[in-house]
């Protein structure tokens, strides 16, 4: 075995503890983030599967394009995907050591997130104010029955996703400031980026399963 090389460490200082290489050479914060995201994906997956289960069993469902403005939802989706692109730029900049651009693009991403949240709030307001939907009452549509599950899943899934976006925005603002001051190195921006891409990816699934199908 070739392991004897590292004898000269004396009393090993913190952080100099030699380790076996990790699969994929990922650092431990990244490993943790990945596994957290996998778990969170299962959580969203469970909610979406539950929605599918209930929807298949439901005698009636409402046409999404009559309840929502599909153009508006597309703009929402586009905003979020654009913010993923700015996030990727921020990660690249922080890798290149460009603190200013790392901060700038992280902040831009946060702005995208805030814009998305604003549209989300409008969606809720539209559902509640215009359609008279509540957690227990479906949106009222001419010629369609009341489907409370339509509202319940809408508020639960988009609310849960929205809370992820909101926490993501705070994480981005924090990361952006730290990136400017050079406090967190490339890792911090990358971790925030992983989380943000995940939140976007989840939205794509929500969009596909709840709004389109």
């Amino acid at each position: 075995m070739s392991g004897e090389a590292a004898a000269g460490h004396g009393h090993a200082a913190h952080g100099e503890w030699e380790c076996e290489p990790t699969p994929f050479k990922a650092s431990w914060p990244k490993v943790m983030m990945w596994w957290f995201l996998i778990g969170d994906a299962v959580l969203f997956g469970s909610l979406l599967v539950a929605y599918g289960f209930n929807r298949v069993a439901a005698p009636a469902w409402l046409p999404q394009d009559k309840v929502f403005s599909m153009n508006f939802i597309t703009v929402m989706t586009f905003t979020l995907i654009t913010s993923s692109a700015t996030m990727a730029t921020a990660v690249a900049a922080s890798r290149a050591g460009d603190r200013k651009n790392a901060c700038l693009f992280t902040m831009l991403t946060a702005v995208g997130g805030i814009a998305f949240l604003g549209m989300q709030v409008y969606e809720w307001w539209h559902m509640i104010g215009h359609h008279g939907a509540r957690l227990t009452v479906g949106p009222k549509l001419e010629g369609f029955p009341d489907v409370p599950a339509f509202s319940a899943y809408f508020f639960m899934i988009t609310g849960f996703h929205g809370s992820h976006v909101l926490s993501g925005v705070f994480i981005l603002l924090y990361t952006g400031f730290n990136a400017l001051r050079g406090r967190n190195g490339p890792e911090g921006v990358e971790l925030a980026g992983l989380y943000w891409h995940f939140v976007d990816l989840v939205w794509v699934f929500v969009f596909g399963t709840y709004y389109l199908i």
Partner: peptide
Amino acid sequence: AVLGLLSFPALTAAAIMLLLDRHGGTSF
């Protein structure tokens, strides 16, 4: 640990929905 990370979220989802059923008046 891997099994826990992959399976506990399903219980979390169920618990969220059960709480909403109990206190939000939903009917999941």
